[in-house]
C-alpha cells in the first residue's frame, strides 16, 4: 500500500489553491455588496446589492470550504463523518441558494406594501429624494 498516495502533495496544493480562489472571490463579491448597501440611494437599490451579493458570496465561501474539507479526507482510513461534513456544506449551499432570494423577495414585498416609494429620475439627471408615506 502506497503511503504516499494518502497525502499527495501536488493534489493538496491544487485543492488548496482552488479553495483559496473560491474564498477570495466570495470575499470580493461580499465587498461589492457591502459598498452597495452603504452607497445606494434607496431601499430598493440597496436590496439589489444585499440580495445578490449575499447569495453568491456565501455560496462561494462555503463552496471553498467544501473543496478544502474534501481535500482533508484521508481516503485510506476513510470515515463517513469526514464526507458528511462536505455533504452538509453543500447542503448549506443549496439551502442558501433557495432561501436567500426568497427572503429578499419577502422583504421587498413587505416594504412595497408598506408604501415605501421607489426613487426615480426626474426630468433632469438629479435624483428625487425618497418620499415615504403610508399607503394604508
Amino acid at each position: 500500500m502506497l503511503k504516499g498516495r494518502r497525502r499527495n502533495f501536488e493534489d493538496m496544493i491544487i485543492i488548496n489553491t482552488i479553495s483559496i480562489i473560491l474564498i477570495l472571490t466570495g470575499l470580493l463579491f461580499f465587498f461589492g455588496s457591502v459598498v452597495g448597501v452603504l452607497r445606494f440611494p434607496d431601499f430598493y437599490t440597496r436590496m439589489h446589492a444585499a440580495g445578490k451579493g449575499d447569495t453568491l458570496s456565501s455560496l462561494l465561501v462555503i463552496m471553498g470550504f467544501a473543496v478544502y474539507h474534501l481535500g482533508q479526507i484521508h481516503w485510506m482510513d476513510f470515515v463517513w463523518a469526514d464526507l458528511l461534513v462536505v455533504i452538509k456544506l453543500l447542503a448549506i449551499c443549496a439551502f442558501i441558494m433557495l432561501t436567500s432570494p426568497t427572503a429578499t423577495h419577502a422583504l421587498m414585498d413587505a416594504g412595497y406594501e408598506d408604501g415605501i416609494e421607489p426613487l426615480t429620475h426626474k426630468k433632469g439627471n438629479a435624483l428625487r429624494e425618497p418620499k415615504v408615506k403610508g399607503r394604508g
Binding site: L28, S33, G36, F40, G53, L56, S57
Partner: peptide, 14 residues
Amino acid sequence: QIFLANIAILKLSL
C-alpha cells in the same frame, strides 16, 4: 447569471 449579476453590482457600487 448570478456571477454576471454580482460583477454588475460590484462595478456599479465601485
